[in-house]
């Protein structure tokens, strides 16, 4: 059946004369050096940092804030220098870090064992989830008075509260990570005949690594906070040592510049661990495996 086609409309031909001046300015131009510098991330961040320091220095100098309330930046750096080379800031820092590493290593081992038990059976998983969900919201520092009674003053009590602050976030996150490993991945593992330790090491851990790493980071954050708080308590209770104690003692001697120097060291260590160590681990694993951008 033939369809009646409408006749083609013929439009008249025309030719545009001048279009007039385009209203755009630069469409494309090479960026100037200043602009290219301002587009670099480290440059902008360093500028912010420098600006903050300059404002701090200017504020304390022009408003004549008493050094007892808020020391100048120069004073703080001088105090840091003095603390590192004349007083025992370096050894105090080392004391803190040693306890922290010991607690972190043991805590990771316990957390790993707990989650290994939890993947081996349903009742084990119930024990872990009940215990962890109950004990995870309990701030570790609240156990310090008890730990002092049980283990006496010293590194043992500190390691005990550190353990408490690390084990639960690590175990909880590892467990959730293991539980959400997809079924095909598990089946691939079983297909290869992997069992027990090799199954966990070759299939579960790589697949659940984002969640495990999140747990490790959270555990680190809690441990770092707990350690500083615990040393402040020690400072209040008895003569101890460590970075928290340094801050507390400096403040008690009204050496506020010294307290600021202690805070700077705390910030520096935290910054290095969170933005260098963990970032590197992420780049080597998650980013490389395409699990995180």
């Amino acid at each position: 059946m033939a369809v009646e086609r409408p006749p083609l409309l013929e439009r008249p031909e025309f030719e545009r004369q001048s279009l007039g001046k385009a209203a755009t300015t630069d469409v494309a131009r090479p960026l100037s050096l200043a602009e290219r510098l301002a587009n670099m991330d480290p440059v902008r961040k360093l500028t912010v940092l420098l600006a903050a320091i300059v404002i701090w220095e200017l504020y304390t100098r022009t408003a004549e804030v008493p050094a007892l309330i808020f020391p100048t930046f120069v004073d703080t750096i001088a105090a840091l220098w003095k603390g590192l080379f004349q007083y025992d800031l370096a050894t105090q820092t080392w004391t803190s870090l040693k306890i922290l590493f010991a607690g972190y290593a043991i805590g990771m081992a316990i957390g790993a064992t707990l989650s290994f038990i939890a993947v081996s059976g349903r009742f084990g998983s119930d024990i872990l989830s009940t215990l962890a969900s109950m004990l995870n919201p309990l701030p570790a520092i609240a156990l310090l008075p008890l730990a002092l009674i049980w283990f006496g003053l010293g590194a043992k009590s500190l390691v005990f509260v550190l353990l408490h602050s690390i084990v639960w976030p690590v175990a909880l996150n590892t467990h959730t990570g293991f539980m959400s490993v997809s079924e095909p991945l598990r089946m691939v593992g079983r297909n290869y005949g992997l069992r027990n330790v090799r199954y966990v090491a070759k299939v579960l851990i790589p697949a659940a690594f984002p969640s495990i790493l999140a747990g490790l980071k959270l555990g680190w954050a809690f441990a770092w906070r707990t350690l500083i708080a615990a040393e402040l308590v020690f400072g209040a209770a008895s003569e101890g040592g460590g970075l928290g104690w340094f801050i507390f003692a400096s403040r008690n001697e009204l050496d506020i510049a010294g307290a600021f120097a202690g805070l700077l060291v705390v910030i520096l260590i935290g910054f290095v661990v969170e933005n260098v160590v963990f970032r590197k681990i992420e780049e080597r694993t998650l980013v490389r495996w395409g699990m995180q951008s």
Binding site: K45, R251, G262, V266, I269, F271, E274, N275
Partner: peptide
């Protein structure tokens, strides 16, 4: 604003790892 993005990221990178309990002795002074 991009400036504020820079300020925010720099400040969080610096202050997030600082346990706030360490500021307590100073806060009590201020």
């Amino acid at each position: 604003w991009r400036v504020w993005a820079d300020i925010l990221t720099t400040a969080t990178a610096m202050f997030n790892p600082l346990p706030s309990i360490a500021l307590l002795p100073l806060a009590m002074l201020w």
